Simulated assay, not measured.
Amino acid sequence: MGKKSRKNVFTPEQLLSSLMDNIPDHIYFKDAQSRFIRTNRAQARFLGLAKPEDAIGKTDHDFFAHADEALADEQNILRSGKPLVGKIERVRYGKGPIVSVSTTKAPITDSTGKAIGIVGITRDINDRMLEEERLKSAQEELENTVRTIDMELNIARNIQESMLPERLDQIDEVKVAALYIPCSTIGGDLYDVIQIDEDRIALLILDVMGHGIPAALIAAMAKVSFTKHIARGLKPRTVLREVNDELIAHLKNERFLTVFLGIVDKARKEFVFARASHPPALLLRKRRRTVVRLSGKGIFIGFAPRYKYEEERVPLESGDIILLYTDGLVECRNKGGVFYGLKRLERLLLKHRDAPVDELVKRIREAHVEFMGDVPPSDDIAVLIATLE
């Protein structure tokens, strides 16, 4: 007896009423003419009614503008016997705001299976839809930003490529070759070879800190300035000083350049160079089978006005090789996190000391690709090589 009474504590009506009165979704029942026969409190509030009973006998036409569409849906459900699931609608009840709702409706059938009414559940999804719209707007804004960045990178890449010489100046007894490996972002690496006269040729390599259009534009300004002063036949240290004083007003202590500038003088058989915080050049003494690092002293271009750069000179012998490069070559790391390093480059230079300069740049590229594997370069790489025959 006790067990039976416990089973019958709640009647079906009590269970249904408890569900309808407490669930936040809008629940309603309609007859075959789409008239409300019962609603829960949430639906009554949504319709602007004081209590659920006030909806009985009314239709959607009494409350909102899209009633014709709702009526057509319900009549189709009654005819087909198939439910309508998760229809997204934009509705306005009374004088309230337009909101987004998700509606599911199903037929109520009698004992013979005939559809005699409609049961519906409508969920307010306005906050969710607003959030989705915000996310969509943010996604579109992000995509527009990415397109803008891509466009700017293409512009910067075109600027950068236009600055690289299509052909390298050559003079008798001095052979020159170059290598450039771009990374996915645009850097400010630049090299150039400028013939001064029949005996002297200038080797220039520089790297603007940062990436993108600003770095490319600064590199372009630097090239114009260097070309002008090198053509005047000035000493490397004087060229660096003049370029520094010209660019410092534009750089405004926000961007800096590292530079290595050297002049090969075949008549004097010497290499005169000045350096502005750039990685040291390498001088391969072919006859002695040794590699010398050409460091020199000097701060970044754009760091201090009227700075006096130092200049050094080294004698050259036939077969000696001068190698200039940007830090992207020696500071790159492979998948294992190992740096390429300057010693690796020195060993490569010694190993291929008998190779012509154009063959040597190929060996440098091959060694770099082998070392990096499938890891893309994180910085541009520029290499400039000259040899005195």
Rank of each mutant, 00 (worst) to 15 (best):
A274Q: 00
A106F: 08
D199T: 14
M221I: 01
L348R: 08
E242P: 02
E310I: 00
T290D: 08
R288K: 15
D207M: 05
R293G: 03
H26A: 09
S5P: 00
V357M: 03
T258A: 09
M372P: 06
K269W: 05
V383I: 11
A249C: 10
L350V: 06
A231G: 10
S162D: 08
E246V: 13
K228Y: 08
G262T: 01
K87T: 05
A267N: 10
I37Q: 10
L349I: 07
R35L: 01
V146N: 11
F339N: 09
K4I: 14
A219H: 00
R134K: 15
V383T: 06
H368A: 13
E366H: 09
D354C: 07
F273P: 12
G302E: 07
P315T: 01
D68A: 14
S378M: 13
L240I: 00
R157E: 09
E198S: 15
R268A: 15
I108P: 04
F273R: 03
G296H: 06
K175Y: 13
N76F: 12
I159E: 05
D127T: 14
D320V: 04
I263Y: 01
A215M: 02
G233R: 06
G296I: 02
T326Q: 03
T11A: 03
R333C: 11
S318W: 12
G298N: 01
R92C: 09
V99F: 07
L142A: 12
L316T: 03
F256Q: 07
M129T: 13
I77E: 05
E161C: 08
H26W: 15
R344A: 08
I181R: 13
L345A: 13
E143F: 11
R344T: 13
V292N: 10
D25P: 00
L130T: 12
I301S: 02
R288C: 06
I98D: 11
A281D: 01
